[in-house]
Design a protein around this nucleic acid. Sequence first.
DNA 1: CGGGATCCAGAACGATACTG
DNA 2: CAGTATCGTTCTGGATCCCG
Lengths: 140, 140
Amino acid sequence: MGRTDSKNYHVPFEATLDVIAGKWKTFILYLLRRQPMRTGELRRAIPDITQKMLTQHVRELEADGVIIRTVYKEAPPRVEYEFCEFGQQLYPELASMCEWGKKYNGGVGAEKIIKKIEKNIYTTPIKTSDMIKPQRKFLV
Amino acid sequence: MGRTDSKNYHVPFEATLDVIAGKWKTFILYLLRRQPMRTGELRRAIPDITQKMLTQHVRELEADGVIIRTVYKEAPPRVEYEFCEFGQQLYPELASMCEWGKKYNGGVGAEKIIKKIEKNIYTTPIKTSDMIKPQRKFLV
DNA sequence: CGGGATCCAGAACGATACTG
DNA sequence: CAGTATCGTTCTGGATCCCG
């Protein structure tokens, strides 16, 4: 994201996704979760990220109120990034997503169910009368 | 996403994001959280979504092992989508993200911290000696 | 009714060169 | 060291038309 727009969301967690989605944002947030880091540290820690993308993503996270950027008036210039208080409230969400991500593991965790889909669903349509649809819930 | 690639993730929750990110995926998952729905129901429930995008997103979620697609051999054709067991394990993650999303609320929740950034950080660089850097943690 | 195929616009991302 | 500017590429999403 990056503020300026102010979108309308239809779903509660749409906003959350909008803030943390981006090719390198996950990595950046992950690295900053324990301690502040300066620009160069982040760049070296993230393989293949370019200076441009690092700056861009880190600025968007700042604009969204997740991290804080501190400029030290020194020579050579020094800039540090760290989670701010509002951003730290994301920790439970991130931790929670870690759990599922590990199960999924690039599709490995989903293999079983995918196989099941291929074998059963497409070849053997289920009769309506056979279907059980338990009510589910997970919250607002 | 949509399987076929098998990416390498550097961060545990990168995979989770990859699966649920997409312009309409949040909405689709949100609608399916309580009961199965057929294609037309989803399309009518999601304003402005096109047939193409609905099919595409729903198929990717299926390929990622999150939802199941059931085809009923009837006339006219009837197709239903619902969370599968593996996908249901995402519920806590989604619920968790709802919480932060509500606080954020399109930037409103972040307003305070943004104001603080604009006022303090840019104009008054903090002396290194003044900075307190508590160790943080949120999990692997 | 549900969905495939095409073509296209715009956003996201990347390579490179340059600045205080 | 950190960041800006420009340009090119790639990828996502959308319009439109057609099919069983």
